[in-house]
Design a protein around this nucleic acid. Structure first.
Length: 464
RNA sequence: GGCCUCUUAGUCUAAGGGUUAGGACGAUAGCCUCUCAUGCUAUAAAUACGGGUUCGAAUCCCGUAGAGGUCACCA
């Protein structure tokens, strides 16, 4: 069999640890069976997608060493690999569905739909579209799939066996939006079909919409790929891993100093086990030993302690010169140092004093003096105000000292805050100290990612 | 709430019906050592519950409970 697998990240934010996890299994599966690993960008949500996000997803997958055989940057036989460049394909497929009577236009307003949903929730009825437009022969609007009533839809998940669901429990899902863009359901099956995808290996979150996809394949008379739904990475409370509870950005993992080989080893270890019980392995070992049947189905909690242990293991094994290089890249890059130096050189007499004044630039997990008044200023009633400031700060378009300053100034006026103590509180959070170089320039040099880590720590402490 | 999926120590997992239920992280203790870390050794710690099937069940079946996912003009 000609194995072709893909990951299909949506470029709507930072590169996600879950994407790396899915990428690893897809990549290894492809390599194991001499197949192809394809990267496809699912940017059918115009509002949320960005090219910057796409670039950083590619960058961080490369950092991990998971390279693809076909993708938006390198092209391939089935190009293009960006969904926004494939609109005609979705539209012609949609037309085909309409002609065959498997889809219909719907003109229901958002108002009507949300009222319907509210009503259904209140009455504890199953939520879903009431098929109001199903037989009204509209010629425009959004396009919905017409689910055949009363049948049973079945498919096989390679890990879970046969899954069957009553069609009455499947919603008449929208497949073409009013802007002419497809939703995920249409776009992914069209692409998977035309890109000859043999195995769809994706997260368990998709399991419950797979019947819709299966139905679409049937409507179009297309052969079904094999489905493999991997268990989801979890927060320590077992919910799906999320940035509210855990750092999930690959940027974070790299910045903290996790090594790609440790991260891959960890992601491979969690939810999968070698037959011989090995827990430390290379990507190459993983490919060789991958056996889809040995994946556990319980959702694994992301265990930082184990990841730390693995990382220390790989660090110890490195040659000293490699560790020197690692530290230079992680901490003492000339790029970073040259940003720090102008802030510190004014304040020191000799090099000897450098580290004392600049240590916070290099440590993400310094001790915050929690008993200091300036930190205590963030009390319970004020916490939401600080949090909204932090959110605005982190999502700033340009993370420059001038835009940070103007944001802060506006914020202080809006909330009628005292300028000086507010600055001191921020200083404590970001540097752990009451003396530092000018705040806004310091934040700019630290950069968005380091600031985010510090904020998260501070908030965690405050919420304890 | 409907539907779907899942369930072995705190966490990740092993055990093709027959094991004193194994390993790893973490925890605790000891050894090594100028300290700390590493390393080594040891200890505690689990089959969600209830029924069946069977000579025999973590493993197969049913029920219950719990957890998760999903129910958008997001993916």
């Amino acid at each position: 069999m000609n194995v072709r697998v893909r990951i299909a990240p949506s470029p709507t934010g930072d590169p996600h640890i879950g994407t790396a996890y899915m990428a690893l299994f897809n990549y290894a599966f492809a390599k194991k069976y001499n197949g192809k690993f394809i990267l496809r960008i699912e940017n059918t949500d115009l509002k949320r997608s960005s090219l910057a996000s796409e670039y950083s997803i590619l960058e961080y997958l490369k950092w991990l060493g998971l390279s693809w055989d076909e993708g938006p940057d390198i092209g391939g036989k089935f190009a293009p690999y960006r969904q926004s460049d494939r609109l005609q394909l979705y539209q012609s497929t949609a037309l085909q569905l309409i002609k065959a009577g498997h889809a219909y236009y719907c003109t229901c307003s958002e108002d009507r739909l949300s009222q319907l949903r509210t009503f259904q929730m209140e009455q504890k009825l199953p939520t879903g579209y009431d098929q109001y437009c199903r037989d009204r022969q509209h010629k425009d609007g959004v396009l919905r799939m017409k689910i055949p009533p009363r049948n049973l839809t079945q498919f096989s998940d390679l890990l879970r066996g046969t899954i069957s669901i009553n069609n009455n429990d499947i919603d008449d899902q929208i497949i073409l939006k009013s802007d002419g863009f497809p939703t995920y359901h249409l776009a992914s099956i069209v692409d998977d079909h035309f890109m000859n995808i043999s195995h769809v290996i994706r997260g368990e979150e998709w399991l419950s919409s797979t019947p819709k996809h299966v139905l679409l394949y049937k409507f179009l008379n297309w052969p079904l790929p094999a489905f493999i739904h991997l268990p989801l990475l979890r927060n320590s409370d077992k919910s799906k891993i999320s940035k509210r509870k855990y750092p999930v950005s690959l940027k974070y993992f790299k910045m903290i100093g996790f090594l790609p080989e440790a991260l891959l080893n960890f992601l491979g270890l969690i939810s999968f086990s070698f037959k011989d019980g090995r827990e430390v392995f290379t990507l190459h070992d993983f490919i060789e030993n991958l056996d889809i049947k040995r994946i556990s189905l319980g959702g694994p909690v992301f265990d930082f302690q184990k990841l730390n242990w693995l990382n220390s293991h790989y660090l110890k094994k490195k040659e000293n010169t490699e560790v020197v290089k690692y530290l230079q890249e992680q901490l003492f890059s000339s790029n970073y140092l040259s940003q720090i130096v102008p802030l510190i050189k004014e304040r020191i007499n000799t090099s000897d004093q450098f580290l004392e004044l600049s240590s916070f630039f290099f440590q993400n997990f310094f001790q915050i003096p929690i008993n200091d008044e300036s930190f205590k200023a963030i009390n319970k009633p004020l916490l939401p105000i600080y949090e909204s400031f932090f959110n605005e700060l982190i999502s700033l378009d340009s993370f420059s000292h001038s835009s940070i300053e103007s944001l802060t100034t506006i914020f202080i006026e809006q909330h009628n805050l005292n300028r000086k103590p507010f600055f001191m509180t921020l200083r404590i959070i970001f540097t752990g100290k009451k003396e530092s170089p000018p705040l806004f320039q310091t934040l700019e040099v630290l950069g968005r990612e380091r600031c985010y880590i510090r904020l998260k720590n501070a908030i965690d402490i405050l919420k304890d």
